[in-house]
Design a binder for these strands. Sequence first.
DNA 1: ATCGTTGCAAACGGTTTGCAATTCG
DNA 2: CGAATTGCAAACCGTTTGCAACGAT
Lengths: 147, 147
Amino acid sequence: MKTSPQKVFQQYLEAQGLKLTKQRTSILEYLLRAQNHSTPERIYRDLSAQDATLGRATVFRTLHLLERAGFVGKILFADGSHGYEHKFARPHHDHMVCVDCKQVIEFTNPTIEKLQDQISREFQFTPLWHTHEIFGRCRKCSQKAVV
Amino acid sequence: MKTSPQKVFQQYLEAQGLKLTKQRTSILEYLLRAQNHSTPERIYRDLSAQDATLGRATVFRTLHLLERAGFVGKILFADGSHGYEHKFARPHHDHMVCVDCKQVIEFTNPTIEKLQDQISREFQFTPLWHTHEIFGRCRKCSQKAVV
DNA sequence: ATCGTTGCAAACGGTTTGCAATTCG
DNA sequence: CGAATTGCAAACCGTTTGCAACGAT
């Protein structure tokens, strides 16, 4: 009994009284294909190449919808801008972002997660979500950057 | 031999062949006064109340200058916007941001810092800086939010 | 048929730039 | 004095919105 992202999305829409349109489907599938760093503009450019009538507004609207539903999340870039990544069948993770080649490396560390909960508890703070991004240079770019 | 932020700033400017203007001084002093969550717009509004000729562009230009120099840093808000905080005589810290009252609680955890370095090393990633923000509800807002 | 959804273009908010006038050193 | 800096307004970019046409159920 496999539940594909598409099916999950469809069920979500149905439950909310919303409709499954071809635009929503193609944006979802774009996100599933592209591992990460999909920006609204890139999604728009790539998809409107096939389907010339797709509008920028729909990309934004669908991204919000998916974000509200918890199917996609934001990822920060070093310059302060951001992109999106889907969260289907992917455990929570944080990011190391290369300031040179823009590559994104995912990491998880259970100890850090545990410490965050502990710190929150100390302050009687109720954590809902977090972002944790390490900016720096990946292995390759570190080598190149050596003076 | 005390070195005030003002003096440090002045020396930095001098070293770069830049000038110390009254606008730059007043923006720096604003940031020193306001603990945190200063947004460009708020800085502009508050300061231009006294000095009606101050321009928005100068606020942005000065903020960039201070950021490049490492005297101020960005702080993310829950809605994706951001503000600035000065970094004079304040050790590195991360943030817990209340999604309701917007309050920012600072925290530091040496173990987390150490783990970050360790993870970076594993990937042969050279960390330059990081952001780590926990979003949730502060003690007071957690209580209010109980259904 | 109904109501959600779309594309469009105009509006938006935050940030940036070009330029002539000003100010610091 | 000369170079850096400023204020202004226009330009810019990413995102949002109002609206009439369209499409899914």
